[in-house]
């Protein structure tokens, strides 16, 4: 939009320049003396503790289970009938989930997903210190709506993808991908600041934490996008 021939863009930028002055001051330095990326070791127990503290369910392969076995257990215990998965999940997951599984082909609508009991995804990484999992829409995670609309989210975290802190996560993530940081089930504290879990997102978050060896994948799938991330 323009007024008097000057676009809003030029006017706002012009005002900023006027506010800063022609002889803008020296650029202040930024001290980064906090614990940055790579400052500390990864503590898997801390991740489990922090996930549970925010009421996520956690399964680990303490007795040497494969991811397929843990998935099957989780699905059985949950009693869920229908699941959706992204197109890029490893074949072993599909076998574990059985015949009722729906594979997203990119055409499922929010209404379709609302009729599904749960979703199974991988993740880009998990942050031990905060009990956070981060999805970046890679092939084993799929479109963002998959992990949002169904009421139960079962997420496989490989121990190798756990980082210690938020700076570690930021260093590893690609900002040009759509990112969803998830810490526990959805929650609200809007009524008298009393925490109520499960509002609009999945009311149950369950995490399966396994070493990569327990989650064998064909060489082409892990960490790859289902579509080109960059639009020209």
């Amino acid at each position: 939009m323009t007024s008097g021939g000057v676009t809003a863009r030029d006017e706002v930028l012009g005002r900023v320049r006027a506010a800063l002055g022609e002889l803008r001051g020296t650029l202040p330095g930024v001290p980064r003396s906090y614990h940055g990326a790579g400052a500390g070791p990864v503590d898997l127990d801390l991740l489990v503790d922090r996930l549970r503290d925010y009421h996520a369910l956690v399964r680990t392969n303490g007795d040497g289970h494969t991811v397929a076995g843990l998935l099957a257990d989780a699905v059985r215990e949950r009693g869920a009938r229908s699941f959706v998965v992204p197109a890029g999940v490893p074949p072993a997951w599909l076998e574990a989930l059985g015949s009722g599984v729906l594979v997203d082909d990119g055409t499922l609508t929010p209404v379709d997903l609302d009729a599904v009991d749960g979703v199974v995804t991988g993740c880009a990484l998990a942050i031990a210190e905060t009990g956070t999992i981060v999805l970046d829409a890679s092939a084993d995670q799929g479109r963002r709506l998959l992990s949002l609309v169904p009421d139960y989210h079962l997420c496989v975290v490989r121990e190798e993808d756990v980082v210690a802190t938020v700076p570690d996560a930021v260093a590893r993530l690609d900002p040009t991908r759509p990112l969803t940081w998830i810490s526990g089930p959805s929650a609200t504290s809007d009524i008298e600041l009393e925490r109520v879990e499960g509002v609009h997102g999945p009311r149950t978050l369950e995490v399966i934490l396994v070493p990569a060896a327990a989650d064998p994948r064909p060489p082409s799938t892990p960490g790859q996008s289902s579509e080109a991330p960059v639009q020209s």
């Binding site: 922090r50 210190e129 009990g131 759509p178 940081w181 810490s183 526990g184 579509e227 639009q231």
Partner: peptide, 20 residues
């Protein structure tokens, strides 16, 4: 909110074809 991390943070950069 007095949490280590809020339940959800969404980040997006322009348009992601086929997603959102």
């Amino acid at each position: 909110t007095g949490e280590r991390m809020n339940p959800y943070t969404s980040m997006w950069t322009g348009v992601t074809p086929g997603d959102g």
